[in-house]
Design a protein around this nucleic acid. Sequence first.
RNA 1: GAUUCCGUAGCUCAGCUGGUAGAGCAUUUCACUUUUAAUGAAGGGGUCCUGGGUUCAAAUCCCAGCGGGAUCACCA
Length: 574
Amino acid sequence: MSIELSEQELVRRENLKKAIDAGINPYPAELFEVNCSAKEIHSNYQTDKIGYKNISIAGRLMRQRIMGKASFAELQDSTGKIQLYINRDDLCPGEDKFLYNDFFKKILDIGDIIGVKGYVFTTQVGEISIHVTEIKLLAKTLRNLPMPVEDAEGKVHDAFTDTEQRYRQRYVDLIVNPQVKKAFIQRTQLTNSMRHFLNEKGYLEVETPILQSLYGGAAARPFKTHHNTLDQTLYLRIANELYLKRLIVGGFDGVYEFAKDFRNEGMSRFHNPEFTQMELYVAYKDYNWMMDMVEEMVEKIATDLHDKTEVQVGENLINFERPWKRYTMFEAIQHFTGIDIAALDEAGLREAAKKIGVPVDETMGKAKIIDEIFGEKCEPKLIQPTFITDYPVEMSPLAKKHRTHEGLVERFECICNGKEICNAYSELNDPIDQRKRFEDQLELGKRGDEEAMMLDEDFLRAIEYGMPPTAGLGIGIDRLTMIMTNSNSIQDVLFFPQMRPEKKEKVASNDEYVALGVPEVWIAAVIKSGYKTIELLKAANPNKLHQEIAGFRKKNKIETALPTLDEVKAWMVV
RNA sequence: GAUUCCGUAGCUCAGCUGGUAGAGCAUUUCACUUUUAAUGAAGGGGUCCUGGGUUCAAAUCCCAGCGGGAUCACCA
């Protein structure tokens, strides 16, 4: 391996070697007993000073301020930061000052994981700190962390902000950007809160297949894969709806699943190819009941996370306090555009859409035009959580026909901060109607709609056995988390958002260069000059390479005699 | 997929109408026993994303590619 290391990385490897030479294991196997955390000390020390006379804590060394015979340092554990005070003569009471002068001051680098023992005290400037009596290296770091610094006003300088690097190296992002960590903790609190709410109601958390031979339950293009033993095409699920409904047929009254779903579609700040949805199905309920439940659940989540129902999201203060505004889709359109679409036929709708500047074309049917108008003119204006109910039947092949309105289904979405966060129906349980709706989808598929649903015979067979009237819900966990954590992008609520693979640079190994007769000392020079693979080296201009090696030799003050031009030429002909 | 902006030291960034690179933090050496963006002094560190082109001369201008951001399209 010929990896080029930066000067700073070389320094760290040098320090690693110094530790080993001094008999210090840089990666010890035995556990380091920890008896408190940074957060715990900060919150309890003032009221319980004697409780922190003998503490043991571990974490990452984040800052060193060395001031002669005494030093301050910052230790960061999973709960936060705490200052360390290290006094040479307290750390090394005897004659031997190695631990302070060499180990602490030189061998330790920022980012190293250490364990310390000592007692808590308050410095003259009033900062709660640990007076260190013992210090131990637990893991040596070989790379240097970005070093954001917070000034007296709380302003952060030199923050690690490059989004690409933050997403690719999330571990670094998490170490140096505390607000990032906070958002992810809140994400888990959100799912915990939701899970707790659902369990309290007696619903059963279940798991259903991710690999499916037929994908269904939503309109989306899937990821396709192959099972070797069965020699069969499988799809990563785009939704789990049809499996959960089978369980309702099977006699469960309430089932839910936090499901990773996969959709082979565009990426944006609201879309990642894999994302999480919580789907819930409850028997003997309808969509009106489900609206009440969603309100209650989301209000509870907001208060669990923020101790109040209001959440600041960008410029908007969103209030999840019940009850939420409810509009039928037609009412919403009338409200925001002044047009009563109930009275219009397809031609009239198209005309109306054009008049208010919503682009439509001849291929769009009535439902599609309504959807366009809503998406364009209403959705972005709905900031406070709002239920939109009663959608055109054509766009909802799994929803039950509306009890009173012909051409509509019993469906609602909740729109919040201008985006859909959930989607729910009174589930279609009429097997004859369901078969017909699937067949309509097949027609769409034949006409080239890649997102049309497939006909799932087994699902039809299941509901032919009878599915109780059921209310179903799908709620986007990523989207809800974005709102609850005031995140601007889905990538900020996914630990590892999808990205193009990193370009890996091919570099030939030392052995490969040696095989060509390149002496060990000059390999670095050859690589540094850009001939990172054997192919590149063989194609090189020997005069140029010879010059470059000479330059490298001078710069790095290498004693070894420069290879002759003929020697350099010889490397290329082997 | 389209449009647009961006890519310079480990990190954050400057670098004008072309003249082969700068700052702060980090890092190295030295001083300093209660600091906290510690301080003072002195150093080191660069494939200016990659490849072409124009030019006496390219980080800078042009073209192509790679990677990323934003907006749009797609995602009922």
